[in-house]
Amino acid sequence: MTAAVKWDVSELQGSPHRRNRERWVKGVAFAAALTSVLISLLIIGSLLFEAVNFITNVDLSRLWDRGWFPRRGVFDLKTLIVATLWVTVIAMIVAAPLGMAAAVYMSEYATPRVRKILKPILEVLAGIPSVVLGFFALQFINPTLVRSWIDDANSSGNMISAGIGVGILTIPLIASISEDALAAVPNALREASAGIGARKLTTTVAIVIPAAVSGLVAAFIIATSRAIGETMVVFIAGGAAATALFAGSPVDQGLTMTAAMASVAAGSDEVVGSGEAFTSLFFVGALLFAITLCLNVIADRVVKRYRLEY
């Protein structure tokens, strides 16, 4: 008869090799997750360092002047901000109704088979690079659409055609977030509504859309933030070169915050490495970062605060 095997707790822990590997893997994965935090810190750091440099060196009266001429030391912020507002407002006038209507159709009306065809098409539209929309806005939207309606519109580019281009770019984004919001409304609500005799139209407008309103608002805010941050369409189709006079009307050339940054950078093949023109890039970048971050945080809050729990 053999003696009873003595078990020790340590033998239940598995092999030290396997335990070691676990610790390593966890450490590496944690480090990877921290990289995202590092990237944020580096972005904020590099923005603030030169932005502070700019604001302490620049003559503050030059921030409220008659236009944006960085190489002459004139940095009128209202030129950039008003242009950004025009482009964003026009983009949202185009994108919000079209995107949300597309979402309503896809979520409430389309049969699964139709959806299967339509959704990839919207996704292809979402994948089109923004330089392509810039080219399209300059070569098609401006001459064919805008200038055939508005004679005064600047032929070398203007804020209306750039705004429409940005709007087209954000349609798929609005459509996709809105559709998720509508799809999250439980079917029981639709069935109850139909059960008391409401028509499809009434169910959609009075039941489904109000139930999804937090997601729809979030879609709108996120798209606004995206439109403010869009660079290439305005850079190509906004009509302004590296400089711009203050323009009050969207039929004029305009320089948005993003396009101003791109212009400073692309003034020649080399980004000029010194001077206020160069640091203005970082200042405008910091402003842009702050605005879009605020909008994204608000969108997050809206979803959390007003989401109905089912």
Binding site: S36, V37, S46, T258, A265, L288, F289, N296, D300
Partner: peptide, 27 residues
């Protein structure tokens, strides 16, 4: 915090990443 940070990074305009590239990876 890491989760929220990633969500916010996804919303940062691409031109701002250019600033990161210029300040850190180029200079």
């Amino acid at each position: 915090f890491i989760e929220v940070n990633i969500r916010n990074l996804a919303g940062v305009p691409s031109v701002v990443y250019g600033i990161l590239g210029l300040a850190i990876f180029v200079n």
